[in-house]
């Protein structure tokens, strides 16, 4: 009976550790997706001159959740045609942000991009998206460093913590 309890505790804490480490790797995964999405938005704008709502529906199909939710919500708001593109962008961010692993820095970058989206000519739009991409690149590098540093640590912490708990309880 004691042994079963000990195994359960170790399993549970290991699982907690894995989950914890996933949130770290999740951020860099989502950052990669967001970058891919913005890159294809850039291509749609610069080479296709596609209107935003059409471009967003293309992007939705290319990237995974939760990034696609953001573009989907943005597209729906544009099609409804109320207010400005910036308002639609900000509202979509509010809605979707809680499902993402992003931090404050990414929010700032996206906010800046939203302020100019769809209001300038192609060159200007391209510059703004490039700028956002550079910022995201930096965040991604940082996220990757964190991932390397902490991912393994959280996992082993989970296992070792479980063992510690078992030893203390015995």
């Amino acid at each position: 009976m004691k042994l079963l309890g000990a195994v359960l505790i170790i399993l549970a804490s290991t699982w907690a550790g894995v989950e914890w480490s996933r949130t770290v790797s999740e951020r860099s995964r989502q950052l990669r997706q967001l970058k891919a999405a913005l890159q294809s938005l850039e291509a749609e704008i610069v080479y296709g001159m596609t209107p935003l709502s059409v471009a967003c529906s293309h992007i939705c199909r290319q990237v995974g959740h939760p990034i696609s939710w953001f573009f989907d919500s943005f597209r729906k708001k544009l099609d409804a045609g109320q207010g400005t593109a910036y308002e639609a962008w900000m509202e979509s961010m509010e809605e979707v942000w809680k499902y993402t692993a992003f931090k404050q820095e990414e929010k700032e970058v996206m906010k800046q991009l939203g302020a100019t989206i769809g209001q300038h000519d192609r060159e200007h739009e391209q510059k703004q998206i490039k700028l956002a991409l550079i910022h995201l690149e930096r965040e991604e590098r940082e996220a990757r460093d964190n991932q390397m540093k902490y991912e393994r640590m959280f996992k082993s912490l989970g296992v070792l913590g479980g063992i510690l708990l078992v030893i203390l309880l015995i």
């Binding site: 704008i45 935003l52 709502s53 400005t84 000519d121 200007h124």
Partner: peptide
Amino acid sequence: SSQMINKLSHYSLYALE
């Protein structure tokens, strides 16, 4: 005027080049 431009361009001024 800005409402009009938004609607004409579908919120994408670059598409009206």
